[in-house]
Computed example of a mutant assay.
Amino acid sequence: MQDWLTVHESSAPLVIGLPHTGTDIPAAIETRMTSPWLGRKDADWWVDRLYDFAIDMGATLVRTGVSRSVIDVNRDPSGASLYPGMTTTGLCPTETFDGEPLYHPGQTPDADEIDERRTAWFAPYHAALQEQIERLRARGPVVLYDAHSIRSVVPRLFDGALPQFNIGDNDGTTCAPRLTRAVEAACAVSGDSLIVNGRFKGGWTTRHYGRPETGVHAIQMELADRGYILDPAGPVTPDNWPSPYDPDRAAPMRDHLRRVLTACIAFAESQR
């Protein structure tokens, strides 16, 4: 197992993907970047800590430690956009969510380098994810839950403030409707805002693995990070981002997410 790839195996019918919590950038790539901070700015900050309770629930976790600015393992490996006509970042991003350039002029990765990165990091991450899905599916249906977060306000990507819970099943294609309804109901208990298939309908992971007819039910959760850390009130700078992880502030969100994951496990077990 590569030191950048973490797999925690367990027995519940639930696999949690953590594709964007990594902050590792190889030195040879970081020196070509405009700023180490920009290279890590768009991480799903602290999501691995937010969900660490899932281990005690028997969930299997697959996490890459590599920054999404090096390669985004939740994008189509062909480079095709997941949201045609909308602003988004690519397989090997060249700019941040806010449109800031990640690389010095002439230093962006070319096609050969992108292919090398795909082989080095994208392929092993998905091989591990596939292995865990197949291991658990041998016993019956399984839920793949792709865990994400993003700043509540990113004007270049969406208007206004994002709902707290953003559930994606790619318009009802990646999991049984009953699972989506169960996750939605678990979120609704919080009293916070939620939406299904809004701005975020599920990334490549959810769309690629979600095959409910074969017993693999994939769903994405994109959290507005104000639910567990302090969102910057004004411009995002190295002085205010990322906000530190505060266990007390995160505790209510962890309770909500525990309810969500309980619903995922209960759904899978009901299918067996």
Rank of each mutant, 00 (worst) to 15 (best):
L223E: 05
D248H: 13
P109K: 15
G22C: 01
P124S: 07
D171V: 06
F53N: 12
Q271F: 05
P141C: 06
S11M: 01
V47T: 15
Q2N: 12
A28G: 03
R118V: 02
R137P: 04
A250Q: 13
A266M: 08
W46E: 08
R272Y: 04
P141M: 05
R68V: 05
A127L: 02
P242F: 15
H8Y: 04
S11L: 00
A224Q: 08
G22S: 03
G198L: 10
D98T: 13
G160Y: 02
L129D: 01
M57H: 11
L223I: 09
G234V: 07
R139E: 08
P93Q: 14
P247H: 07
Q2W: 01
E95M: 11
Q130V: 10
W4N: 07
Y245R: 09
L230P: 08
I133V: 13
G58M: 11
L136I: 06
H148T: 02
G22N: 02
A185R: 04
A266G: 13
H20A: 04
T205Q: 00
M57K: 11
G160E: 05
M253Q: 11
G79V: 06
H20Y: 10
T6N: 03
R75N: 08
L102D: 12
G202Q: 05
P101W: 14
A188V: 05
Q220H: 03
D171G: 12
N74R: 10
L5Y: 07
S270T: 15
V73K: 01
H217G: 08
T6A: 02
D171H: 11
K41N: 05
G17V: 05
E213Y: 01
I133S: 10
H208S: 05
V196Y: 08
M33W: 08
I229K: 13
D76A: 04
Q132R: 13
D169A: 14
D76S: 04
P36M: 15
K41Y: 05
P124C: 06
S190A: 02
T89W: 09
H256Q: 09
D112S: 15
A161P: 04
I219W: 12
P84S: 10
R249A: 11
R135G: 06
R258D: 00
V236L: 00
V47F: 04
T262A: 14
L82N: 03
T89Y: 10
H8E: 04
R117K: 13
I114P: 03
H217S: 07
F53I: 14
M33Y: 07
L129H: 00
S78G: 10
S81I: 03
G140E: 02
P109A: 15
D146W: 02
V47R: 02
E131G: 12
R254F: 09
S10P: 10
G210K: 01
V216W: 00
D76I: 03
A182P: 04
A176V: 02
F158A: 12
Q130I: 09
D110W: 04
W204H: 14
A27C: 12
Q107H: 15
A147W: 01
L91W: 08
I55G: 14
A185V: 02
V183F: 04
D192E: 10
T206Q: 04
L157C: 04
A128H: 00
T21Y: 09
H208D: 01
E9D: 15
A127F: 03
G198I: 12
L18N: 01
A28S: 05
L261D: 01
L102G: 13
G202D: 01
S78R: 02
H104D: 13
E9V: 14
N74W: 08
E213C: 05
R135Q: 05
